[in-house]
Amino acid sequence: MSGMLLEIENLHTHFLTRAGVVQAVNGVSFTLARGEILGLVGESGSGKTVTGFSILGLIDPPGRIVEGSVRLDGLELTSLDQEGLRQVRGKRISMVFQDPMMTLNPVLSIGEQMLLAVRAHERITRRAGLERAAAVLTRVGIPEAATRLSAYPHQFSGGMRQRVAIAIALLHRPEVIIADEPTTALDVSIQAQILHEVRELARESGTALIWISHDLATVSSLADRLIVMYAGRVVEQGPVAEVLSDPRHPYTDGLLASLPANARPGEVLRQIPGNTPSLLDLPEGCAFAPRCARASTICATAPQLTHSGPRSWRCHHPLGAGA
């Protein structure tokens, strides 16, 4: 598997709360190639966001990576100290968050915030730093960027703020951008625009992208490869087209069936029965079994990952060719 840009192996991130250990990420492994766009899909609480934060070591206590490895081009990130991690953050791997209303500091001007991000990794004069900031703002489609630098976040719309956040993520031409549902909080029309632009920007600069989302439809129009997470585990992964047209895991199948686009007009939308299990108290075997129509007694034991070409899945009773 060497030669991969990012290799995540058997990652376990747990939260040691008063109620018990919350196993948010429970043995996740995947890789990311240079310039690849990877969609990370799952319901709320499936561990997709925690996976994203774990890569950058941004898990706040009481959360902690208890096991596993995250390697960036061979560099083990989980054993880096604070300063080592800081040098990776924003420089080699950067991140865009879900809600642009919350991520920018309301009392610092856009230029000031971008300058802080530039200077985090470069010794540069104020003037040159602001010029860099303006150039990147122009790249993400903000008109009159140079004059907008003195503006404050509240003077921008949600879409514009997210563009600023994306510009900050792009400042140092990172190798990977982790985008955690960056369009969820935006209007639908802006969503499509930003989606398109981010893909173009990533392609242009050869940046790999991990696009975290609960929205299968959005991700499938963007990504090269898809990872489906459920209850802190990867349940299925493979090239987008194959996963969508021929899902192996019943959970993926359920997600696809619940998309409005796949329903006939007038028909009631299909939904997956039941709820996601509590991460405090995961079942012994397959976590999806209680909601699964295909479950049998063997599902009380944990299914192993089955590989087939570029695809893999974690199920005792897979659909399609494997059945």
Binding site: Q82, R89, G90, M102, L104, N105, H121
Partner: peptide, 15 residues
């Protein structure tokens, strides 16, 4: 604990 600080950290800004 806000996203503002988390985002600043993610950009590599020192503590």
């Amino acid at each position: 604990l806000t996203d503002t600080v988390k985002f600043a950290r993610a950009a590599g800004i020192s503590e």
